[in-house]
Amino acid sequence: MKQLWEKISKNRYYQMVFKNPFTYITGAVLLSITQIALFAYSGNPWGVSGTFANWGAWLYQLFGGSVEKWFYFSTSGAQATLDAGILSHTGTMLNVGIIFGALLATLLASQFKFKKIKSLKQVVAAVLGGLLMGYGARLAGGCNIGALYSGIASLSLSGWVFAAFLLVGAFIGSKLLAKFFM
């Protein structure tokens, strides 16, 4: 059995598809095809962070909180999604699918390693960064996927405005990173 895995590992086509990383351009083309296919199939482009708000709401409800009165969840559609639960939520399947897809790709390349948190700095960075992204994504109506990628591809001006200020944020973030988190 061991020989078989070794043999596969040395196979040219295995290395091409599963071992070696794709180029960025290949990634761009494949992502575009998948994005367009998703849009054609479901009538909605790809979004990631809207689902996080739903996860937050379900978590909050688990602790006895209620979001019914919040403007964000006030539409009947949002309420129906919340009532249907996490196992009927398509966005959840998409996001968990991303985690599994990435795990699969890493394992098939035999490159999986659990990476522990190394320092307090990383904890602070993750907490602060996570909160900023979460709040920011709600304000802008999405993240790099929903508001930027899907926004721009939907011929929306909001995507371009978001892009410009993301760049400003990334510049500030780079300076902060060099100063405090390195």
Partner: peptide, 15 residues
């Protein structure tokens, strides 16, 4: 959109 973009930009680089 502006505030959200800057917040998100800072957050993603740090995290």
């Amino acid at each position: 959109t502006v505030v959200g973009g800057v917040m998100f930009g800072v957050g993603m680089v740090i995290a």
